[in-house]
């Protein structure tokens, strides 16, 4: 999923400071799963923002909505009914959702309430970790199902570097050494000999190197 984390309340509050009526929009997809911008987080943030403004002797009216998917125009369209009644929109979706609202409703300011972080998986309750950087040319088949681009701090394709110790990365004891994991996995799969094959320098064009990316499926158009 795409993970996100709420911005500091101060930052959000200062964005909407000039406004009295806001539309606070969550998303039922990824940000709900990572507890950053679903229905519940919308309600929490709404209460917090209202309390901040009550403290200042002001009244903030908040319309709370959570869309099925904020990155799809079909769902964003449903905000049209409410957009005229508000001064600004605050989105709790990932950057894709924020941009979709901004694209559809050009006349109103849209502010992000979360920082979009990474594509990751849930390691255990309350912990999400980066797993994929969307490089556009998946090499997981070569590396035992563990991505060195997303999970090695230096994104080495021929790791590990000389800094790993006890299976941890040199930058922090909290970070697993991706290449240590890859090696263990290769051993478990009995493909250790594949380790010595040099993975040549990557073509980054399918990644962000080729400019903003697009997928076009003619059969679906």
């Amino acid at each position: 999923m795409i993970t996100a984390e709420r911005k500091p309340l101060d930052e959000i509050a200062s964005c909407i400071e000039p406004y009295n009526r806001i539309l606070l929009v969550g998303c039922n997809e990824c940000v709900t799963v990572c507890a950053a911008g679903g229905r519940k987080e919308v309600a929490m943030l709404s209460s917090a923002l209202q309390m901040v403004s009550m403290k200042q002797g002001k009244t903030l009216s908040v319309v709370e909505m959570t869309l099925e998917r904020q990155c799809d125009p079909e769902y964003v369209e449903s905000l049209a009914l409410h957009i005229d009644g508000v001064d600004a929109v605050v989105s709790m979706a990932c950057g894709c959702g924020v941009q979709e609202i901004a694209r559809r409703f050009g006349q109103v300011r849209v502010f992000p309430a979360v920082n979009t972080k990474f594509m990751g998986a849930s390691e255990r309750a309350g912990v999400w970790a980066e797993r994929c950087q969307g490089c556009g040319d998946c090499l997981l088949g070569l590396t035992g199902g563990i991505c060195p681009i997303a999970r090695c701090s230096k994104r080495l394709m021929n790791g590990p570097c000389g800094g790993s110790g006890d299976g941890k990365c040199e930058i922090s004891g909290e970070v697993d050494c991706a290449w240590h994991l890859i090696w263990e996995r290769m051993k478990a799969l009995g493909i250790e000999d594949r380790y010595e094959e040099v993975i040549s320098a990557k073509d980054w064009r399918p990644a962000r190197g080729g400019g903003p990316r697009k997928i076009i499926r003619e059969d679906l158009q």
């Binding site: 994104r155 080495l156 394709m157 021929n158 040099v198 993975i199 040549s200 320098a201 980054w204």
Partner: peptide, 11 residues
Amino acid sequence: YDMDSVQLVEA
């Protein structure tokens, strides 16, 4: 980290 050390050797 466009390349790693092994890839630089190769280059």
